[in-house]
């Protein structure tokens, strides 16, 4: 069971996660219009920028975040932005979309000039997230947990970050037990996706370099 405080925290996080998303007209553009490779690139960078902006808005609402050292706030966001972006994008491929939409989206990403070497692990991740059928609560919590990773580079006060992350982990563990009573490994699987995300983050840095070059 969740305590009353945990319920409040969870509802607040989910509301904030749902409220802060990429503007719909931008997401629509991705599905409706035909672009060449260069326009694909521009649209995807515009979306990435928007992703980061909404991520910051969501993060500001995480209880206690704005009380952290200002440079630590930046270090946490910088270290997690790409991972949070992949987590959010995975939702697009998880949710039921009108027929053909996810194929169109996949096609556009594949034709954006990014090499297959990076695309394949990305879609593998989207598939592995899809298999977990994550709830909104799990999405929001996992995103907050990713952001509040104390071991990010340049974080000075790791303990302060840990104090914010621990209650989130506890709520996530309880949510998993409540909603997946017959899958005791569900919580561990969710955390396992965070390890996968770190690998993607690493690939992403290399991918950007190759993308810029091409």
């Amino acid at each position: 069971e969740l305590t009353r405080e945990q319920h409040t925290l969870l509802n607040f996080l989910v509301d904030s996660y749902n409220k802060h998303r990429i503007p719909q007209d931008m997401a629509k553009k991705l599905l409706q219009e035909q672009f060449n490779a260069e326009e694909n690139f521009l649209l995807l960078t515009e979306m990435a920028t928007s992703h980061v902006q909404v991520l910051v808005e969501f993060t500001k609402n995480i209880p206690g975040f704005l009380g952290l050292d200002h440079e630590d706030q930046i270090a946490l966001l910088k270290g997690s932005a790409v991972e949070a972006m992949f987590l959010r994008s995975a939702q697009v491929f998880t949710r039921k979309m009108p027929s053909g939409h996810s194929e169109l989206l996949e096609d556009r990403i594949r034709k954006s000039g990014i090499s297959d070497e990076f695309i394949t692990p990305m879609f593998n991740f989207y598939n592995s997230i899809g298999q977990l059928h994550m709830l909104q609560e799990e999405q929001a919590l996992l995103t907050a947990i990713t952001i509040l990773t104390p071991e990010r580079p340049y974080v000075k006060d790791q303990q302060a970050v840990e104090r914010l992350q621990d209650p989130m982990l506890d709520v996530l563990r309880r949510i998993c037990a409540l909603h997946h009573p017959h899958q005791p490994q569900h919580f561990a699987r969710l955390l396992g996706r965070l390890t996968e995300l770190r690998t993607l983050n690493h690939h992403h840095a290399e991918m950007l370099t190759s993308w810029r070059t091409s």
């Binding site: 515009e46 920028t49 910051v56 500001k60 930046i74 966001l77």
Partner: peptide, 21 residues
């Protein structure tokens, strides 16, 4: 344009928005 900003710039700007609020 935002496209030309680095990740850290985008984060700093977005966080500053809060301070101005």
């Amino acid at each position: 344009p935002a496209n030309n900003l680095g990740l850290e710039d985008i984060i700093r700007k977005a966080l500053m928005g809060n301070l101005e609020d």
